[in-house]
Design a protein around this nucleic acid. Structure first.
Lengths: 342, 342
DNA sequence: TTGTATGCGTTATCAT
DNA sequence: ATGATAACGCATACAA
């Protein structure tokens, strides 16, 4: 150990000091601070000026201890290193969540899980009463934190995809419907041999996109034209497009399970001398920063990431007020951003 | 008001319960929990099993109230909406900070400032004793939060660029040196007419990059070949390159103050029929996701964003232990990622 | 080595 | 409408 910082030593004004300065009791001061009824106008005034005079700020630790509420809500981001830096939706979800919580006077606290150790510490943090509720994005199946949250019964909402647990609230998009819609539009441009580069088949989102693709194709569906990779990455797109080209040189349409994948696929197509969209039409998923950077700009499914965040926050707030039970999914509409790649 | 959630009502086991279950006193239990000396092995054992038995978890609010420490450190992200989503460094800083704090068993708590209201609430949050220290990225000059932090004397470190306040710790890169280095390398490729698209001249980082550019050019510096725009964006690159081409059709080298700017400039150059790097060499700054997406890949300055985050965390930790005074800057080395655009 | 007692700053329940 | 007082769960100085 060493010298504690000067900050830690400092004592700031308490209700006690305010009471002394105003000549009223601590009870009355507390009532004024919490805006309760049954306080005279004059009492309120003198308390207010006493507060200003002594520079009082409420001590949250004490208040939390007493009320068992922290007025803070945690947002747990559980992404592997690389994806975290690349995923365009995380930032938007964050901002959306923050806007709703901010309006309700809750403090958003984001917690990053980047290691086993983090996982444990975050679980501890949650149990410590630092937060009244929690939003979890991109939970894995079999996630220890997810299970801890359920076990504790803390108000929560998952965003991204439904977890493998019952009795939990979640918000997401309808991946089946969205995939089917954009594939259908791709078909309407006259494509005959359409393939898919799928990804993350260990998650509902990944599986559902394949299901939608298949539904759109109907009888024309050919399993040989679907390849899949674990990660929604540019590299997966490169690999996948090569395989697809190998299997079906006459391919004229591609549905990529993410924009990053589409970007990789497009570079391979270009290198193979195919022109887009003349020879091959391609569509993606996410409407991320990749989409506009592609040449030509990519047609893609827009995820309402901000709304996802807002909705998740709202659902936690509702549970907090006992207005809602912690169960069931909410699905938000996606829209297709139709550009020049198909 | 409405029905409070069931969670809020729940009471979990306390030290009291553990004491009862183990037949020891609350004091001894507390000592075991905090790993203090002077506890017998048998006492420790029975406390441990009692903890497991009753499912005890420490109440952080109570502990904070008593110790005046929260073992949490805040990371304040103060970026305008759009930049927040685009800036590639923020995620890396976040991860770097988290790794150091995690190892020291501190919980990182990220706070987003996205509105005036947020600003106030975050200040309140800091005063509430939720965090023992704070890291602030991309603070503005005249930032109310920055001033609040200084006024409270809470251990802090700024990352990104030095604030306009004295007696504060900050970490950053040497923008002058980095800009000079990459411009020099650009000149060594034989360029004669080299321009710059500058940005954010209201911040040190922006001004320093111009200074470095100028230093590298020496007598060859021509003010007419420097254009500037408020935002480090793709659009600034498009605009800037058009102006530069207008003023100096014979331009053969460009230093863009960010990768996004470089990307915009490259698209304009291509549209104007200039080949890169044959006709014009171009370099950027940041080594962001843009750099690899450019055609050809962009030569650029790599910011050690992860290290910046780690260093900032370390400096806060040092202040917390009284090991360091809260003042002075730390500058980290940049490296140049030399690719094909120049 | 262990137990006892006190206080951290609030809110909330009583009287008044 | 206001004032006294008892918790909240913990750490710690002191006594044993």
């Amino acid at each position: 150990m060493s010298v504690p910082s000067e900050f830690a030593r400092r004592r700031s004004a308490t209700i006690h000091d305010v009471a002394a300065a105003s000549g009223l009791s601590r009870g009355t001061v507390s009532r004024v601070i919490n805006g309760e009824r049954y306080v005279s106008a004059e009492a309120r005034d003198s308390v207010m000026s006493a507060i200003a005079e002594v520079g009082y700020v409420p001590n949250t630790a004490a208040r939390n201890l007493k009320t068992k509420r922290s007025h803070a809500i945690g947002l747990i981001v559980h992404e592997p290193h690389s994806l975290f830096l690349e995923d365009p939706n995380i930032g938007a979800i964050l901002l959306g969540t923050n806007s709703v919580l901010s309006a309700a006077d809750y403090q958003l606290v984001s917690l990053i899980v980047d290691s086993e150790r983090d996982s444990d510490r975050v679980a501890e943090y949650l149990r410590g009463g630092f937060v009244d509720g929690v939003i979890i994005i991109s939970a894995r199946e079999n996630d220890p934190i997810g299970r801890a949250v359920v076990a504790m019964g803390i108000p929560a909402a998952f965003v991204g995809h439904p977890p493998d647990i019952d009795g939990i609230a979640y918000v997401g998009i309808d991946n089946v419907q969205a995939a089917e819609a954009i594939t259908t539009r791709l078909l309407h441009t006259g494509r005959r041999r359409v393939g898919m580069i799928a990804s993350a088949l260990d998650r509902d989102s990944g599986r559902d996109r394949v299901a939608g693709f298949r539904a759109a194709l109907g009888d024309a569906f050919d399993p040989a034209l679907v390849v899949d990779y674990p990660l929604y990455s540019y590299d997966s797109g490169v690999e996948g497009m090569r395989r697809l080209l190998d299997r079906a040189p006459d391919i004229d349409g591609v549905f990529a399970a993410s924009d990053a994948i589409a970007a990789g696929a497009m570079d391979v197509l270009r290198a193979a001398g195919r022109s887009i969209p003349k020879d091959v039409g391609i569509v993606g998923f996410d409407d991320s920063a990749w989409a506009l950077r592609c040449q030509p700009p990519l047609s893609t499914v827009r995820q309402p990431a901000g709304d996802l965040g807002r909705m998740a926050a709202q659902r936690v707030l509702d549970q907090l007020d006992g207005r809602e039970s912690a169960t069931g999914g909410t699905f938000l509409e996606t829209v297709i951003a139709w550009r020049e790649s198909a």
